[in-house]
């Protein structure tokens, strides 16, 4: 144990130095981290404001150029083709992505609300069997069963349709589990009160369960919207009709293999388009997003 002979001044000075150094390093580390995250985006945004030749020559610009309006209008209305593919306007692809993301998010939330309500507030034969049937889908991402699912879609004649694009992705257990967990926290007294008031289960669902679930629904919507927007393998397989192209897949198709002449400016512009909606959702709905993320994974 220290005795009365400790040198207070030296200890205090050491502590001050340590704190100052630590503060400096903390900020430095965070700024570096942010820079690494932001660098690719910056390069892309800058690239989207130059013409093809500037980028293609490899004179990598670090500051924005003057071609922004031209690039963005071209990409939006005509799209960039690369060599092997037909150009699809970014507006079409963005629309497809938006519809797909919203259908997946809304669909998952809707069927999960209903099934979680049934599992939590009713008692019926085979209840747990059904619950486990839903639960087990948690374990298998769509990528694992992609080929057989594709064959099922062929059998059902759903290839190249928006239904085929979205419906298989709606089968997932995460939302059901979250709602089940949340419903279990709704006090029994509410159900009793509803019974006393003579309200049936559907009325209870509409007047009590739904209003109580709004923040959970919002949180899930953010997560599922991003999940839907970012789908890649499934649309790649399902869609050959380019009118149904989604923006993430469409973007990678714009990049030719080998040393083909790519329209880099339009590719970068489309990348910015593809990036904007989900990033905006995350940043603007940050609170719900974090809640949704940390609670679905519990």
């Amino acid at each position: 144990m220290p005795t009365a002979t400790i040198d207070v001044e030296a200890l205090a000075a050491a502590s001050r130095r340590r704190k100052a150094r630590e503060r400096f390093l903390t900020h430095l580390a965070l700024i570096l981290g942010i820079a690494v995250f932001a660098l690719p985006i910056w390069i892309t945004i800058v690239g989207s404001t130059h013409d093809t030749d500037t980028i293609g020559r490899g004179d990598v610009p670090l500051l924005p150029g003057t071609e922004a309006i031209h690039n963005y209008t071209t990409a939006w209305f005509q799209g960039g083709g690369g060599r092997n593919t037909f150009a699809v306007p970014a507006s079409t692809m963005l629309w497809n992505s938006l519809v797909m993301a919203i259908l997946i998010a809304v669909g998952k939330i809707a069927i999960s609300l209903l099934s979680a309500f049934a599992v939590v507030f009713f008692s019926f034969p085979l209840r747990m069997v059904f619950f486990w049937m839903i639960f087990i889908t948690l374990m298998l991402p769509v990528e694992v069963r992609i080929i057989p699912t594709f064959q099922v879609m062929t059998d059902l004649g759903l290839i190249d349709t928006m239904t085929g694009l979205t419906l298989p992705l709606i089968a997932s257990a995460t939302a059901t589990l979250l709602f089940r967990q949340f419903f279990l926290t709704i006090p029994d007294e509410y159900v009793e009160a509803a019974k006393v008031d003579g309200a049936g289960p559907l009325r209870f669902f509409k007047d009590v369960v739904l209003p109580l679930s709004t923040t959970n629904i919002a949180a899930l919507f953010v997560i599922l919207f991003i999940y839907g927007w970012n789908q890649y393998l499934w649309p790649l397989l399902m869609v050959s009709n380019r009118d149904l192209e989604t923006v993430i897949v469409g973007l990678t198709k714009m990049i030719g293999i080998g040393d083909t002449q790519n329209e880099w400016n339009l590719i970068m512009t489309t990348a910015v388009f593809a990036l904007l909606p989900p990033v905006a959702v995350v940043v603007l709905m940050q609170r719900w997003f974090i809640k949704g993320l940390t609670e679905t994974e519990k």
């Binding site: 970012n230 890649y232 993430i248 593809a274 990036l275 990033v279 940043v283 993320l293």
Partner: peptide
């Protein structure tokens, strides 16, 4: 936290 929103392919 925003890069979470970026698709892997993107």
């Amino acid at each position: 936290i925003w890069p979470y929103a970026v698709a892997p392919a993107l």
